[in-house]
Design a protein around this nucleic acid. Sequence first.
RNA 1: GCGGCGAUGGCGAAAUUGGUAGACGCACUACUUUGAGGUGGUAGCGCCCGAAAGGGUGUGGGAGUUCGAAUCUCCUUUGCCGCACCA
Length: 1021
Amino acid sequence: MEYNFREIEKKWQKDWKKSGVYEVSNSSGKPKFYVLDMFPYPSGAGLHVGHPLGYISSDIYARYKRLRGFNVLHPMGYDSFGLPAEQYALETGQHPAVTTEKNIETYREQLDSIGFSFDWSREVRTSAPSYYKWTQWIFLQIFSSWYDKNQKKARGIEELIKIFDKQGNAAGMGQRSIQKNFTAEEWKNYSTEEKQTILMEYRLAFLALGEVNWCEALGTVLANDEVINGVSERGGHPVVKRKMRQWYLRITDYAERLLQGLTTVEYTEAMKEMQRNWIGKSEGAELEFEVNAGLNSNLSLTPNPGLPRDPSPQGEGSGNSIRTSNSGGEAHSLKIKVYTTRPDTIFGVDFMVLAPEHELVSQITTPLQKRDVEAYLEYVKSRSERERLAEVKSVTGAFTGAYAINPFNGREIPVWIAEYVLAGYGTGAIMAVPCGDQRDFDFATHFKIPITNIIGEYFNGKESNATKEAVLSNSAFLNGVKMENAIGIILEKIEKEAIGHRKVNYKMRDAGFSRQRYWGEPFPIIYKNGIAYPVDEKELPVELPHVENYSPGPEGEGPLANIPEWVNLDGGIKRETNTMPGYAGSSWYFLRYMDPHNDEVFADKKAMEYWNQVDVYVGGTEHAVGHLLYSRMWTKVLCDLGFISFDEPYKKLVNQGMIQGSSRFVYRLDRFSVRINGEVKDLAENSNIFLSLSLVQNLNQSENEDSKINSHKIIGELLKIPNVDFYHDHSFKTSALHIDVNLVDGIELDIQAFKNSKPEYANAIFILEDGKVISPGEDFDHTSSKYICGVEVEKMSKSKFNTVNPNMLVEKYGADTFRMYEMFLGPVEQSKPWDTKGIEGVHRFLKKLWRLFYDDIKGKVWTEEKATDAAFKVLHKTIKKVEEDTERFSYNTAVSTFMVCVNELTDLQCHKKEILQPLLILLAPYAPHVAEELYHALGNNTTIVDANYPNLETKYLIESEKEYPVSINGKLRTTIVISLDASQDEVEKIALNNEIIQKWMEGKAPKKIIYVRNKMVNVVV
RNA sequence: GCGGCGAUGGCGAAAUUGGUAGACGCACUACUUUGAGGUGGUAGCGCCCGAAAGGGUGUGGGAGUUCGAAUCUCCUUUGCCGCACCA
């Protein structure tokens, strides 16, 4: 009986499905464990071998935890809203729902063939109305909340209204930058519209007019993390800034908690660092510098008219706050607010720079400088975001003619504008300290602004030095103070003298939450007189209407705007035509799995109490700042509002590494020219000649003249060049062509398959590794000579012909082999190249395991006889190691432990059920099909999925002797087998009496003997 | 530029606490089973010297701590990933 994996796997997959073993209950006496995978976007391309890596890891862990007595939730679903389906719809007219459904089917088939223990009865799809009903509902909760900065949590908006009714927004309400403070009395007198406009400033999901990343090609707005170097993440289309009214999530209010929360979760350091970076917290001060005004007599300094306003990253001070100071009735004096993390360098300020977009620019520019400034603004405007990003570090700017006054020494400093100061960060204005900041230094040098040195010899005049170690000079009352100590002193003074205040800044922006797209969740929002109101809960879900075409609507609106009968409701009420972004549905899906069919609530509270946080979350690093941050924010909001009791969704995060493609190349001889009798002849142009790897290498290298000449000779003969000295007088060109890895066995080209792959290759000529030539139509004996391909590790992608389809491997070797091989490849979290060849080893292992039970000729060989102690020792060694390795996700070493175990049992000729059955249970998480089959073969008639995990019995592991390594002066000289009962004295004596040791000691007396019990002996002479 | 993670045979890798470097697998070599291919089995396999015994050397490079370093410290080279005119 041989290992017929195809039959076995089909049989058990069917059986598991029928019996529903993987369906899990929300009530159980067992402790719970939640193992979650990042659910996939069902793309049309299907899975390649890189995708299942994470799923296999989590499946092993889930199965293991279940065997260890946990009630394990291990669900799967689809993140099925998104751009690609819609792009596809635009091109083909096929409805996204249709293509999505089809893709899901393919995915499911592929997943099923690998034998996962997913509870498919809990499947979710973000595009299903029964699911997005609750995405919309949660959105409404966020819309109806505000962030109380005193209590540091979200609260219902009705509580805010109560506060306004009672005390207006004066006390403690000033955290948010609001146009004006109002009393309770005033609040009550506001119109509904006015009230709603004010409330919008507080809502956690809000509408605002803001600069957004507009992608013309995609016809939509993108979030910051969807834009990479000025082009869209998907498709690489140019992205420009544009002012539009958009939905936002006020994630900046959670910046601090998102940062703090990282200390309570187990993510990799890299992952946490990426998030910290994205949040970008910095501590410093905001200071005001007065500007010499009276420069422009027609100042109009009315406050910002009307809401809505820019969503601001720092809550307060939306962008650049303008204040007039009319004290003393003198000429208008303006103040420029700057943000700095180094207030200790205040006496080193030599100039000031505003972002070109800064609101004060036009007001402070002197008539003399007006031309310069306007020309510069024109130049800035002409440059796209992309150009600005591409051209890093080029110094540009213009002088405004205005001077600011250093509040500490009254020094007048010139005010410039320059691109390198960003309007969106801090206050959009900086105090420039050239001796301490390289950008300021470059700017000063370029425009010949004199530099004040406040750090003595720490500044060499050639580059800035951002040290905090220096002792300050040229710094008035700070002279002689070390910079790191000066920060505190100056901060106190700044606050005392009301020049400014301490300030924490975050780089993170509020998250854009609307998309001008069709294939996403419609907003449950309607407009009356331009004011947004929530749709009544009873009307959820607001279903996505059918559309005929997927083109954008008018004025940057999405396709939904093309359906007036859907948009326009009775009484002048209009629907929101934007849809939600891709991360909406994925922000809370882990909760829906807990109670996926509930129609009353998004998930039953008891279910959420029971399953609680995700214990292990497995997925790729690409979601570090997007999905993970949004999901963490939603969880915090739901927690604040009392729906759940935990505010971090994922306790532990495991990032699987990328599986890289291992590309294969063939080398085509494109040109080979030789000079014969002074005449250059092209002897091979666009030939169909393919050179094996070492020939190409020989042609290109110079170290080994012989092989180089030889390679030329071979080609020369092939091209029928007479015996001329073409070696010295020639030129050639080869090109490396990607070829499908499936046409290659390891690195050896399957010439016949290659010829068949494309008509143009049918008559190709091959020069093999040993110089043998294979002409068209000629058969070749591939044992004697080979065509060797070039190899390079690259990203796995269709265009590089290096993708490997898991189905093919499952078909050829079986799911169990495939699972174990993916794990055997290396540590889960590490990136590694795929190598199909190695799978044979794992397959051999499973066949060897099988032979412990069945012999090809003799049939059944397993017995119920008593096993030997030696066999028990092998078993328990394996139990110990596999358990440790599985717990720490070290699956590659666990697989090799299984191999060692089977090798040793084979050597012992152990076929005892006593040993084999526990081994099968250990193996079940890794190779569930074969484990189940053999488990039943041993006479069990219940599933191995719920078997009793074997207990480690350490008594079998006790050793009686040890092979001690004995070194002299740290250099290993020999090993001696010594009883473990031996005392230190005895061991030392035995070691010193050892012949080899004596030889190496050369008669010297030992100075010292290092003895580590049960480990080693080192003699120092 | 800033930050994170790495670098160990021909290849993927192992070494969990500073204690026999290279487990396990691939590839390769020889032998063997078989009519042949495949499969299965046995043995070898870091590099250098040597027929062997044995010796030297060896974890990107350099220094250090230690009886002892792949592992700890400092410097340096290099690869991958993330962020990037963020004040």
